[in-house]
Nucleic acid binder design. Structure first.
Length: 200
DNA sequence: TTGACGATAGTCT
DNA sequence: GACTATCGTCAAC
């Protein structure tokens, strides 16, 4: 039996560190008895009220962003461009609105189901190499917002895969040009040479 | 109540 | 490389 990540993993206050720790961990969802998922290979940290790229910048609190202010260990999902669902993991403790965007996974479980959801004919690298692609592949949508990652249909596991620090690439986040100097922060992390990482 | 907009992806040129 | 699909959210009216 593999170890499901517990609450303490998410409640830490160093979201940058958690973003790195998430590389090599496994994300799964269950739908109608079918489990799909894979290894996380790319993440982005959104570090709270001082981060101009974050929805919670300047302590902004709305019906959408209130999820981020909750205790860590839950899912923050929102709609992007009216079409795409993006999956984030809330970190830190209550009233510390930080989150990590999962940008890409390497699919390992339920591959046939993933392929059929993505309407792709063969097993290709573009199945889950983007934040909206992986939510479609794992059937994550707005209904999963606020879901607890300890005891719901979405969870993470530690399968004892160690990603060495030297194999973690740190670079700038994607699609946040509006964020001023925060657009230059190296808060995107991915596994070096992994073919499932999203393309710039 | 309205309108502008986005932490993207797929298609077309 | 450019174009656009498409809708929940949010701030302003």
């Amino acid at each position: 039996m593999y170890n499901k990540l517990d609450l303490d993993f998410y409640l830490r206050n160093d979201t940058i560190q958690i973003s790195k720790d998430l590389l090599g961990k496994f994300l799964f969802t269950k739908s109608k008895g079918i489990i799909t998922g894979g290894m996380i290979v790319e993440t982005e940290a959104y570090t709270g009220i001082t981060d101009r790229a974050s929805h919670a910048y300047n302590n902004k609190k709305t019906t959408r962003t209130k999820t981020m202010y909750k205790n860590g260990g839950i899912a923050y999902i929102y709609l992007c461009y009216g079409i795409h669902h993006l999956f984030n993991i809330v970190t830190n403790q209550i009233e510390h609105p930080q989150a990590i965007l999962i940008r890409a996974i390497e699919p390992t479980k339920g591959l046939n189901k993933i392929i059929s959801r993505r309407k792709i004919k063969s097993n290709q690298y573009n199945l889950t190499n983007g934040p909206a692609k992986l939510t479609k592949a794992l059937k994550i949508d707005l209904n999963d917002n606020n879901l607890c990652l300890i005891n719901s249909r979405i969870w993470l596991e530690d399968r004892k895969i160690l990603i060495r620090n030297s194999n973690i690439i740190k670079t700038t986040r994607i699609g946040i040009d509006y964020a001023g100097e925060y657009a230059d922060k190296p808060w995107r992390f991915y596994i070096k040479d992994n073919p499932w990482v999203s393309v710039k």
